[in-house]
Design a protein around this nucleic acid. Sequence first.
DNA 1: AAAATGCTCAACCGCACGGAA
DNA 2: TTTCCGTGCGGTTGAGCATTT
Length: 282
Amino acid sequence: MGVNHSSNPALEMGRPPCFEDGLNKGVWTAHEDEVLGNYVKLHGEGKWVNVAKATGLKRSAKSCRLRWLNYLKPDIKRGNIALDEEDLIIRLHRLLGNRWSLIAKRLPGRTDNEIKNYWHSTLKKKVQESSSNHCKSKKKPMMEPSAESAESLKMDSCLSPNKDVINCTTSSSAHPFPLLFPVDEHPEAFTPVEPSIDGGLGKEIVAEQPPESGDEIFPVNISCGNDALWDSLMDFDVDQLCLSEILEENFASFSEFDSMTVGECGINGCQDDPLPSFSDLG
DNA sequence: AAAATGCTCAACCGCACGGAA
DNA sequence: TTTCCGTGCGGTTGAGCATTT
């Protein structure tokens, strides 16, 4: 963060490049950067396997791609992450989990690697601290749900005899978070889902809705296997919202939802069961 | 002042996915 | 349908710096 990469600080630190299998590994030199930059300017992004052949760079295609995307790309924004960006990262992480590339798409000029590093080095602690404070008044942490809570929710979702699977279209008015995708366009995403124990991607995410009265639990069944739902979530994300818009978004109710549901189990609660790919997003 | 510890961040690794052959 | 290849993503590593003891 805030590092002048044009001067290649790591090299200045004296970290030598490593040569292995005929390929350079480790820190990029200024000359390599220049060669790669020139190549991309001429030929555009992609075809990374050709870079080494065409330029003589002793770098793997992956390495070239990473270097370009993370450092050489002209619109890369360097420097400290602003408070609003930080806030956005936290919100998006709450919503998307460790989908760094998706989060990065919402922060123009920031890379997934940068955000990921920033999260692990800074934000994770902040969030944990705030959630531990939060937990003094609320019984469970907002973030990084425990396996226990996730497990308990799976149990709720799968085994509770009283469980009703709520159709989101009909429960939206009472929904604790704003619907971020148009129901009309994705009715299939809101059809009731039979509870099931599924070892694969079909595992459900079940979020407890705040009971309107009493302690009854009304799980909202969000099936991970329901592509349509995830498409819908992706629709929410697809290049529609940028920093300012998201920050202006009223997240109050959503945060409330997070603190009670998703934050405890929801999306992240499925971490041992990877979410469906968002790779076709954007 | 020196050692120990923690932090930052660039880069690598392995896996998954999608398209082409 | 299967295999191969290129690409993208998230997790992890490791070197150097900063801070603490």
